[in-house]
Each structure stands twice: as structure tokens, then as C-alpha cells.
Amino acid sequence: MTRRSPLAIIFGVVFIDLVGFGIVIPILPLYAERFGASPVVIGWLLGIYSAMQMLCAPLLGRLSDRIGRRPVLLVSVLGTAAGFFLMGTANTLTLLFVARVIDGATGGNLSTALAYIADVTPPEERSKRMGLVGAAFGLGFIVGPALGGIFSHVAPQAPFFVAGALALLNAAALAAWLPESLPPERRVRTFHVAGARSLDLAPPARRRLACTLGAYFLTTVAFSLLTATYPLFTNRRFGYGPSENGYLFATQGFLAAIVQGGLLGWLIRHSSDKTMTVVGVVGLGVGLVILPFNGTAAALLATTAALAVSHGLVASTLNGLASRTVGAAVQGRVMGLMQSAASLARIVGPVLGGWLLHHDAVTLAAHFGQTPYWAGAGLLLAALALALAL
């Protein structure tokens, strides 16, 4: 039997997981409206998933340092399947919230996948290799939203059942083919709640990690604010439904896959992680400022493309910078902290975006989307200051 590359298997695990995630994201805001959810409630529906991730991701990361990456990945993928199936069978808004809670509580697979990559990759190669996760993320957002748009024509809940089935296939593939990356001799001996203070870093490394966490948090707030409100924005401004939004999200995924799957490694070799982070943050800020003024489909597509490319530059480089601040024994903990910061951001972003978009709905109909997207651009100014301090 030929030996399978662990990185290829991790790529496949993340890709299939993100296909399921990509199916749901363009559909869920409009699906929730069928239950009478307002933009603010939709923001909470999206945010509750990240609230549970914020609470559980550090624990799962620390647990993976203790018992290994493979069992944590397997449990998280099975939880994702359960959440998707419950979304498909939900007949009330309350059950939709319960489904998001289940999915979020077990949603530690990305941080554990990043820790897996850190286990098998030398420090100088980590940003490039973590770009593979970003590429899988991007490819998942090509296939997922397109499938969501297609299956939404079959039945409103059909995309959730497709996503659940894919998650079960993902769990089966992981159980069959993924080897453990963290041998027993490299595991921590005790389990306690993860936290930055317990990492025992020197002051310069602690400052770099704090700046990295802060920049990651702020950029994720801005991008999740955009992602959560984008279907409602395009529906109001351009009359787009699930299918059109699915194709737009697929375009974003395609561009992110190009950037993180190949272009990012070349760019880092000719510059640095810090430079690419700064360029990405600036690009995100500019894109958010001009997005509300898009009046044509061509302008919308161009701005969406710029936002996707910019975000592709930021996420992997910040994860790579964080990974390089610590040793091998605590990679899971640090990746858990990074994903916990991102999860908190994905609570703040959708809720803030929904509230500000509701403000636009009642006061600024001619400039719908301006308030949340300009607020996101303001947050990116603070992220830029932190990125420059790295």
C-alpha cells in the first residue's frame, strides 16, 4: 500500500469540512428569515457558533497536546455532522440555535489541523504550509457555496443534509487514513485550562504573540462582519438570492485558494510574513470602504475579489507568526488561543454587523451597508498598527 502524505490528508479533511461550511454560510441568513429572524437575530445565530468555539477551542487545543491530534479531529468532525443534520430538521428558530451550539462546541478542527501541520513542519516553512489550510478553505468555498446554491432549489433544508453527509464522509476518511502527528513522548503530561500566561514566554515573544492575537482578532471581526451581512447586502442592493450569493462566495474561495495555495509561499520568499500581513490588512480596509458604493455587478465582483485576496494574505501569515513564537509541546495550545480569538471575533462581527445593518435599513436606505463596512474599516486601522508592531 502506498504511503499517504499526512499534509495531503489534512488538506482533504479541511477541504471537505469547509465544503460543508461553505454550503451553509450563504444559505443560513436567508433561511433564518423564514423563521421570522431579524438582521440582529441572524447576527446572533451566526455568532453563537463562534461563542461556543471561543469557549471550547482552547480546551480542544490543550486536549490535543495531551492525547494527540487525531482523536480531537475525529470528535470535532462528528459534532459538525450532528449540527448540520439538526439544522436540516429544525422547525423552529430555537432548534436552529441549538444546532449552531452543537456545531460550535465541537468545532475545534481548524486549530487542531494547524497544530498538526506545526508538528510535521519546520518553523521556517509553517506559514507556507499553513497556507495549504487556507487553500483548502478557499477551495471549500468554491465547491460549498455552489452546491448550496444548487441544492437550495431542491428544498430549503437540502443543503444542510448534504453538508451533514459530507461531514460523515470526512470522519470516515480521517479515521481510516490520518496518522497521529504527536508521539506520546512529546505530549504534555497534565491537562489544565489553556491560557496565554501559562506559556512561559520571554517578554519579547509574549509581546509578539499579543500583537499577533490582537491583529488576528480585529481582522477577523472585520471579515466576519462582512461575511455575515454580505448575503443581506447583496439581496437588498442587487436582488441576489441564495444561488447568486453562492456563486459570489465561490469566487471568493477560488481566489483565496490561489493566494494561499501557491502565491503566498512565493510572496513570503520575496518579502516576509509581516509585510504580507500589512498588505492584506490595508487591502481589506480599502475594500470595505468602497463596497457600499458599488452600483453594478462588475464593481461588486471586483471589490469582492480584492477583499478575498486581501484576507487570503492575512490569515495564514498571522497563524505562522504565532506558531513560531513557541515550542513544539504547546503548538496545540497556541493554535487554540488563535482560534479562540477568531471565534470571539466571529461573535462580535456578525452581531455588530447585524445591528449596524439594521441601522442602515431604517435610516440610510440609499447607502445600505455603509455603516457596518466603514466600522469594519475602522477596526482594521487598529489591526494595521498591531501588524506594524510585529
Rank of each mutant, 00 (worst) to 15 (best):
V77F: 02
P184E: 07
G332E: 05
D200A: 15
M335T: 01
A315M: 12
S111I: 00
L313V: 11
F11M: 08
L96H: 02
G287W: 00
A167W: 01
F97E: 07
F151A: 02
L284R: 01
Y31Q: 02
A302P: 00
A222S: 13
V281Y: 00
L59V: 13
R324S: 04
A302R: 01
A136C: 07
L199S: 13
I258T: 14
A383D: 05
P123H: 14
A383S: 11
R208I: 07
T371M: 11
H359W: 13
T80H: 09
I48H: 03
L7R: 12
G22K: 09
T277S: 15
S316E: 06
W374V: 04
L178P: 15
F84K: 02
T371K: 08
G36F: 08
V154Q: 10
R197G: 06
G262A: 11
G285A: 09
F217V: 06
L386G: 00
A113I: 06
P204E: 07
A210R: 15
G246C: 13
L139Y: 04
G287Q: 09
G327P: 04
G280I: 01
G241R: 05
Y373H: 04
V278D: 08
L248F: 05
F97H: 08
D360E: 08
Y49M: 05
P184S: 08
I67T: 07
S272A: 11
V348M: 08
L139Q: 08
G283C: 13
F11N: 02
E33M: 12
A377M: 14
L307W: 04
N319I: 00
V41N: 03
I27N: 02
S5G: 10
L86K: 05
R62E: 14
G353P: 00
L300N: 04
L218A: 15
G107H: 06
V98W: 02
V19R: 11
R4Y: 13
Q370W: 15
P156H: 12
C56T: 15
V193W: 12
P179C: 09
V279H: 09
S198Y: 13
V24E: 00
P58C: 08
P204I: 09
T303P: 03
R236Q: 12
G262C: 03
L218Q: 10
T219A: 11
A328G: 02
L96I: 10
L55F: 15
L209Q: 08
G134P: 01
L182A: 03
R207P: 00
N109C: 07
R237H: 09
G61Q: 10
G349E: 06
S271I: 01
A385H: 06
R206F: 04
P292R: 11
T92R: 01
V143I: 14
G283H: 04
N235G: 13
L301Q: 09
A51C: 08
L166W: 04
S152N: 06
I27L: 05
L73D: 01
L300S: 01
G108M: 06
S181Y: 07
M338D: 02
R129W: 06
T325W: 07
E124D: 10
L386F: 10
V24W: 03
G12D: 03
W44P: 00
